[in-house]
């Protein structure tokens, strides 16, 4: 599904990714771990198409389509979803209105009519139940005054509504207490299918107790330096990242 080859990228002429390779197939869950400043969030933003980053070399393909050629919204239409580490506030725009706009804009890009209001309501009801979201929450302004947990839950709610092919969860566990973490993880697990793929970007092993990855990659200095299964995450938790750095020398 996702194929990243020899990706080099920089921001303000500072190289962040330095020859990254990653292959993700449908039905898989990949975790990307690594110390601060390794380039984890950069990778997420580059896949989603954030403009500040410049891809200097290499390719990113989603189902054989070159993502580098696409604007951020076109990538979204192609099925890329990014759960933000710091979701932004949009005052006066309700959660419902926002997701309705997102869905209808995506449909429009595909030449489809707006989703009938009845279907939209039904879908919202289903997905909010799945994620244990209070209905009152849906009429609040997007992320305004939301707690950390509410923001992340709202991200996963949007993911559930948009049904992406590739979901990238950037530090979704940060700022969550254990109960919120369980709800979010539970939601992700329910949304997982053989047709979609998930990339979890995380600092800690904690999230991986609830969403078990098929692969764990260690990102260091702009490259993936080690790949393993779920046990690698436990090893990292126990030993930290230093031993990998030493291994590299």
């Amino acid at each position: 599904m996702l194929k990243i080859q020899n990706l080099h990228a920089e921001i303000e002429e500072k190289a962040i990714l330095k020859g990254l390779n990653l292959s993700v197939n449908a039905g898989e869950v990949h975790a990307i771990m690594g110390p601060n400043g390794a380039g984890k969030s950069t990778l997420a933003n580059i896949i989603a198409g954030k403009e500040e980053y410049e891809v200097t070399q290499g390719s990113i393909e989603l189902n054989n389509e070159d993502l580098n050629e696409l604007a951020p919204e076109e990538r979204a239409h192609a099925g890329v979803f990014l759960s933000f580490q710091y979701p932004v506030e949009i005052p006066g725009v309700s959660v419902t209105n926002f997701i309705k706009t997102a869905i209808n804009e995506t449909r429009k890009a595909k030449g489809l009519e707006d989703m009938p209001a009845k279907d939209m309501l039904k879908k919202i009801r289903e997905k909010s139940e799945l994620l244990e979201i209070d209905r009152k929450f849906l009429s609040r302004s997007l992320n305004e005054g939301f707690s950390g947990g509410e923001k992340k839950r709202n991200e996963i709610f949007q993911m559930a509504m948009l049904e992406p092919k590739l979901a990238i969860l950037d530090e979704t566990d940060s700022g969550l207490d254990i109960d919120a973490l369980k709800v979010v993880a539970n939601g992700v697990n329910k949304l997982k299918s053989k047709d979609n793929a998930v990339i979890l970007i995380t600092h800690y092993q904690r999230l991986l107790d609830y969403i078990v990855p098929d692969y764990v990659h260690v990102l260091h200095d702009g490259k993936i330096v080690k790949t393993g299964d779920a046990s690698l995450a436990k090893e990292l938790e126990a030993k930290g990242y230093d031993w990998i750095k030493k291994e590299l020398v």
Binding site: P72, R75, H77, V80, F84, I90, T101, Q158
Partner: peptide, 19 residues
């Protein structure tokens, strides 16, 4: 953020301004 959800910039501005 809006772009990432499939909303192009022009529509995003409209959404933000209306809000």
């Amino acid at each position: 953020y809006c772009n990432q959800r499939g909303i192009d910039t022009e529509k995003a501005i409209a959404l933000i301004v209306n809000g």
